[in-house]
């Protein structure tokens, strides 16, 4: 799939002040939402994050997703309140090898005594601007019927 994440959004995702939330579901459909600060975009335009806990619910749910070709969602909230939802599919879980070791070493240098369970690669399929002002404008234009009349009432 083509690189669908814009340069502007890549910069937002790369900003350490941006909040990045991963939403997954388990095998019974129970949702799970968790912040993943390590999200970034790789050279192929895929989302990457580092799962440091083997037992993390997100890790289990991503395994379920990659097994059954299910989608996950990521929401990005920038420091200036721009929000984007990215829906995609896990492509790969890297659990060993030179890339894994390089990341493991870098993580321990920057974060201290932590481990690394997997590097997850997620292919984005759909991006939606969820910034509040943008969504309000879209809603006003697309659904003129969906509003309270008092907002239109001329006193």
């Amino acid at each position: 799939m083509a690189d669908i994440i814009s340069k502007e959004l890549k910069d937002i995702i790369a900003d350490p002040n941006t909040l990045k939330v991963l939403a997954t579901v388990d095998k019974n459909g129970v949702p799970h939402v968790v912040f993943k600060g390590s999200f970034h975009v790789n050279e192929e335009g895929n989302l990457v994050f580092y799962e440091v806990l083997e037992s993390a619910q997100s890790n289990k749910n991503l395994v379920h997703s990659i097994w059954f070709d299910k989608k996950v969602a990521i929401n990005i909230l920038s420091a200036d309140k721009q929000s984007f939802e990215i829906v995609g599919k896990p492509l790969k879980s890297i659990t060993a090898g030179r890339e894994f070791e390089k990341t493991y070493i870098a993580l321990r240098e920057s974060k201290g005594d932590i481990d690394l369970a997997a590097i997850w690669i997620i292919e984005p399929e759909q991006i939606k601007n969820e910034t509040f002002s943008v969504r309000v404008s879209e809603d006003e234009e697309k659904y003129p019927i969906l509003k309270h009349l008092d907002r239109l009432f001329v006193q």
């Binding site: 990659i66 879980s93 659990t95 060993a96």
Partner: peptide
């Protein structure tokens, strides 16, 4: 071999 799901 290693599979996409990270298993061997």
């Amino acid at each position: 071999l290693i599979l996409r799901d990270g298993s061997y």
